[in-house]
Design a protein around this nucleic acid. Sequence first.
DNA 1: TATTGTTATACTCTATAACTATA
DNA 2: TATAGTTATAGAGTATAACAATA
Lengths: 156, 156
Amino acid sequence: MPASKDKQKTPGLDQSCLQHLLGYQIARADVPTRRAFAEHIGRPLELSPVEFSSLVLLAFNPATTPKQLAEALAMVAPAVTVLLDRLEKRGLIERARSDSDRRAQIVSLTDAGRELALKAHALSMDMEREVLSALSAAERAILIELLQKVARAARA
Amino acid sequence: MPASKDKQKTPGLDQSCLQHLLGYQIARADVPTRRAFAEHIGRPLELSPVEFSSLVLLAFNPATTPKQLAEALAMVAPAVTVLLDRLEKRGLIERARSDSDRRAQIVSLTDAGRELALKAHALSMDMEREVLSALSAAERAILIELLQKVARAARA
DNA sequence: TATTGTTATACTCTATAACTATA
DNA sequence: TATAGTTATAGAGTATAACAATA
């Protein structure tokens, strides 16, 4: 019997011509990963991926500036502004002028923001278990390491 | 001396709190991968990632329907319509009604489309060499395989 | 009734340019 | 003159709903 159990109306295309491309494989693996995020964190906590990442980064990095967030998240400055506007409006973060350089800002979590960040971080553990369920612990570690290697090499 | 050689104005954030997340690693690896695509294929051939993927898939899959493309590229039907509109306007593809089911279409490459698809496919080899230059051949194969495993597991 | 594909529309993301306030 | 952050705006990508033609 065929591998798929649904009505098998449309036969799938042969994608072997693209499978050697890292970008293509990343795009394909990105689909289930984003779906898992939406299910475990995005919908229940009403957080987008960058909102989640920002909160967690802020929870683990005291005295962060918008510029640092922009670099860490590969975002452009205006995008960070609207991101922080949203988080501030929800009462999750606060912005204060830096004393040493009055152009710069110090972004910090409110109590509500810290609570949400830690809750989201905890949920991310369950999410990973599901996303990586097809992989052994060793395979999981290797995958993370190889992706880091690709990202790091290109930054140099 | 510090690892980075630039003006080191903004100290980078500690991102260890996110590094265990596949989605985060995918997003980070996606940045240099997209940049390499733009440089090697996107700008010189004026193709977006999905335009490239569509052309290559069509080159290797005769008698493809828009619905099949939608599934292969994880796109929604209206997005495929505008994608094919663009490619058709550039004289790269043609659309014809299917004989067996007159609702469906058969998408096929024009001569110009086939030529561009094969040229792009060849360029993608050079691109991969650069993107994966930090990885050995064995690591490269493992990375591709593990990403496939993640994508496949979630589809089940 | 269900399916293929189209149109219209809206919503989010992302990118750029012009501005302010500080340095 | 350069930098941190903001505002305004435009462009691309993505999603939904309503529709026409066919099954």
